[in-house]
């Protein structure tokens, strides 16, 4: 089994408080790995640590994060910037906030491509339209020229996913990608993710929704209060949860 991302004993502090304590897990190449836990369990802190975009005050005390066998913690600012968006990219929970309201969807996607590739303007436009079509946004040229507030919630989330995909990253971190959508839209976004997995995309899915995770993920890591309490293949854990907390989580979403 090839692992794209390996987190070893990651510990994050804010002041004297420990947010993550010796968190270790691996994300297999071409699979969906889910981080599951209640709010405050440190899921998003892990995502921000991987991107090296922790809010001020939060510090990584020790640990290592191997991405393609290179420790991200040893990267300097500029190296890290070139990783973001191009090698690892992120899908945010709230797409309305994550898009700049003054720029069209096309302009914002173009910005990402312009940063990471040296393609010409018309090549970039073609790529953007391709990716918009790939996330099943019909009439991609129409979407290209829209401002974020002019799209529906589902369209915005797809546009967000398209933006994350536009520079062909190796790893996608999806932070609660469906929690703001209604159930039918959730199902369609999950279909989209399944489709991407078939194409070999590696994904780190962050969710509090064990029900959704059980349908989508290959591996699951259960977090509680900043510690990994259980991890393994999704079927194994769903059939025989060892930890009490996991059992409670499962009951909540049964």
């Amino acid at each position: 089994m090839k692992y794209l991302l390996e987190i070893n004993k990651l510990t994050v502090h804010v002041g004297h408080k420990t947010l993550l304590h010796n968190v270790s897990f691996k994300a297999a190449q071409g699979k969906i790995t889910a981080l599951v836990g209640a709010s405050g369990s440190g899921k998003t802190t892990i995502a921000n640590s991987i991107m090296r975009l922790l809010p001020t005050g939060l510090e990584i005390n020790h640990g290592e994060m191997l991405f393609e066998h290179k420790n991200l913690l040893l990267f300097n600012k500029e190296q890290m910037r070139l990783v973001r968006g191009a090698r690892i990219s992120m899908i945010f929970q709230e797409p309305l906030g994550a898009f700049n309201p003054l720029m069209t969807i096309g302009q914002q996607m173009d910005e990402v491509l312009a940063v990471h590739t040296d393609k010409l303007k018309n090549e970039r436009n073609k790529k953007i339209l391709d990716v918009l079509a790939k996330v099943e946004l019909l009439d991609s040229e129409h979407i290209f020229n829209r401002y974020p507030h002019q799209l529906s919630g589902g369209q915005r989330q797809r546009a967000m996913i398209a933006q994350a995909l536009v520079a062909d990253p190796k790893l996608i971190i999806a932070d609660e990608p469906t929690s703001n959508l209604d159930v039918t839209l959730q199902a369609r976004i999950m279909d989209l993710f399944r489709h991407f997995r078939k194409e070999g995309m590696t994904m780190l899915l962050i969710s509090h929704d064990l029900g959704m995770v059980s349908h989508l993920a290959d591996d699951v890591i259960i977090l509680e209060k900043g510690q990994v309490i259980e991890s393994g293949q999704v079927q194994t854990i769903m059939q025989a949860p060892k930890h009490k907390y996991t059992q409670r989580l499962m009951e909540a979403f049964a």
Binding site: M51, L53, R81, L82, V83, R84, G85, A86, S89, M90, F92, E94, G97, A98, F99, N100, P101, L102, M103, E111, V112, V115, H116, Q163, A167
Partner: peptide
């Protein structure tokens, strides 16, 4: 704002974020 964080997460450089996302 989230869109500034999102731009950072997409690898946009600081000076570009200031000029294209903050100043407008």
């Amino acid at each position: 704002r989230d869109f500034v964080l999102a731009s950072k997460a997409m690898g946009v450089s600081d000076i570009k974020i200031i000029i294209k996302h903050i100043l407008p």
